[in-house]
Amino acid sequence: MEVIKSLEKDRSNLIKAIQMVQEEYGYISDKSIENISEYFGIPTVEVEGVLSFYAQFKRTAPGEYKIAVCDGTACHIKGSSRVKNWLVEDLGIDDGETTEDGLFSMETVACLGCCSLAPVVSINGKVYGKLDREKLLKIIDDYRNRGEN
């Protein structure tokens, strides 16, 4: 495991290691679990047990553009369920899914810390706030076209 070889082989670095692998590959494959387990000398089931506990870790490949729909309190009050619906309609995928072309994936998350701009989504970490339907669909379209070019 190239990406984690800078880490000290201490159990307390396990989560860090999983994060680094996900950062590199976008998700955690069975192979990655084996590699991590070998690196730390921890059984694979235990690595799986730890990673399944944390919402951040993905076991399937996400889209090229990862959309996080905020459903924190402020965004919920300001209509995050509608924001999600607009995306479901536009992309044809639901929470946790990836579009067939692999371009977009979507998940709901709790609070991106920009509550004052609610409702917000983030795409690959960039936050877009004060969304209405038109604004959101335009943002998605821009990404889509970026993909085509």
Binding site: D71, G72, T73, C75, C111, G113, C115
Partner: peptide
């Protein structure tokens, strides 16, 4: 707390 951002700030 999903709706708080004091510590982030």
């Amino acid at each position: 707390d999903p709706g708080a951002f004091m510590d982030r700030s």
